[in-house]
Design a protein around this nucleic acid. Sequence first.
DNA 1: TTTT
DNA 2: TTTT
Lengths: 148, 148, 148, 148
Amino acid sequence: MAGVNKVILVGNLGADPEVKHLEGDKVVANLRLATTEAYKDRNGNRVENTEWHDLELWDGQAKIAEQYLKKGMQLYVEGKIKSDSWQDEQGNNRKRVKIRVINFTMLGGRPEGAGSPSQGTSAYSGNSPKPAAVPVMDSPGEEDDLPF
Amino acid sequence: MAGVNKVILVGNLGADPEVKHLEGDKVVANLRLATTEAYKDRNGNRVENTEWHDLELWDGQAKIAEQYLKKGMQLYVEGKIKSDSWQDEQGNNRKRVKIRVINFTMLGGRPEGAGSPSQGTSAYSGNSPKPAAVPVMDSPGEEDDLPF
Amino acid sequence: MAGVNKVILVGNLGADPEVKHLEGDKVVANLRLATTEAYKDRNGNRVENTEWHDLELWDGQAKIAEQYLKKGMQLYVEGKIKSDSWQDEQGNNRKRVKIRVINFTMLGGRPEGAGSPSQGTSAYSGNSPKPAAVPVMDSPGEEDDLPF
Amino acid sequence: MAGVNKVILVGNLGADPEVKHLEGDKVVANLRLATTEAYKDRNGNRVENTEWHDLELWDGQAKIAEQYLKKGMQLYVEGKIKSDSWQDEQGNNRKRVKIRVINFTMLGGRPEGAGSPSQGTSAYSGNSPKPAAVPVMDSPGEEDDLPF
DNA sequence: TTTT
DNA sequence: TTTT
């Protein structure tokens, strides 16, 4: 029976995208996204808890990621859980979980950028030219061309 | 900054819950949930793809799971991704991803059960007495008492 | 900046679909879906609260709705909020909110149907032949053909 | 049977919150949130479509809204659809749909604010002191105290 | 108007 | 009425 496997994340990129251009025009981008929750423990102390997610984007989305996404940016991500299973050298069953991104959008990104130089570093300064103009990318069909 | 880490699943249980009663009244239940997607590949053949999810429920929810959930049942689940990291005996970094359940509800479960015997097996026949009456369980606060 | 407008519902149909075949092969189906939440008030009394939603499906989804959906069935629905605004005869601004369905799947629907007669009524008995086999319908692109 | 009624929005506030302090310490805040989707029509022209949502927050969340939210800010919102029904003076059945907010978080909010003056206007400049530090507010239980 |  |  048809099921539902949906993930919704809002978090920040821990690094620039890692992009691989494969044969046959395929492109894959891998992202590390941190989602942080803050709460008070029973003693009233503020606790922060960060979860790191491995995201995988393909083709059109991967190209957008390569072009616009930078370490530190805040993203909204919708995707699904996908796991790879294999046996390691010791013969142990191994499993790795990734989020296959269905669509995403950049958040915040107040560009105004008066006087914001293009630093040598790739870290996101919130001042890149119009990153927020990248629309949500929906994966089925339309994902293969850049949306502008 | 506050983030969002949300998972929404609709799928079927691959087995009865595994429940552990810990010291100090803590209870934990582990579930295996299958979400299946069906689509047609480029040749028009129907393909089915099943993803297995490890769910973890605590305390009040774990008790409800223990009492009502059976292999085969269809569930709606809302939760968040949580990973455990450790080093294995070979010193490799290992990571395991689970879904910490925030709330869930049983789906379908047409009880009427005309002629449905209580089989010796624990597999869900769709005829158990009123499973669908279990409400969505929200985890914060109210999760520790059975909701009926 | 690209936004997110997402609705996720699990509920029951209050009536059979109302389907209109428009010129140019367009088809639209309107559904009424009830989502019920149950909770205990401060006196410990069980309270039920039902919200009725107006759903709108187009083309391929509308045809599937016409063919398979029946009053009483339980659905998972994903969509977005869409409002129509107009002026009524008195010149008042009026607004109506609908859920534009992006995809849906039938839930439960234990087909086995031992002894379930095909009643003259259209109300769902939970015994119709394999409704649960209808996959989630995604709207972009593939929505115009029946998925089997 | 327990249902699901969930709304997830990412959008911008069209105005400052409207807050009412009621008797008995109750507080309610009303927000107008715009979610915009952009797509290309069949002629390849970029089209923008904005949906306006009426949000309602209570008590602790309302106080946070009153204190921190400003016109123009970008929010992530989770809530549920709630409708009020009544008869107008002409005896017509009327219905109004609101989003009852369950939790929300402010997005973006590049605080650093080099050279950003505190303008007399209340419009969000993206430079207010650390708005992004406000965590997601969950409504059940903990909602009545400010979370810091 | 559904469902429990 | 927001945002780009």
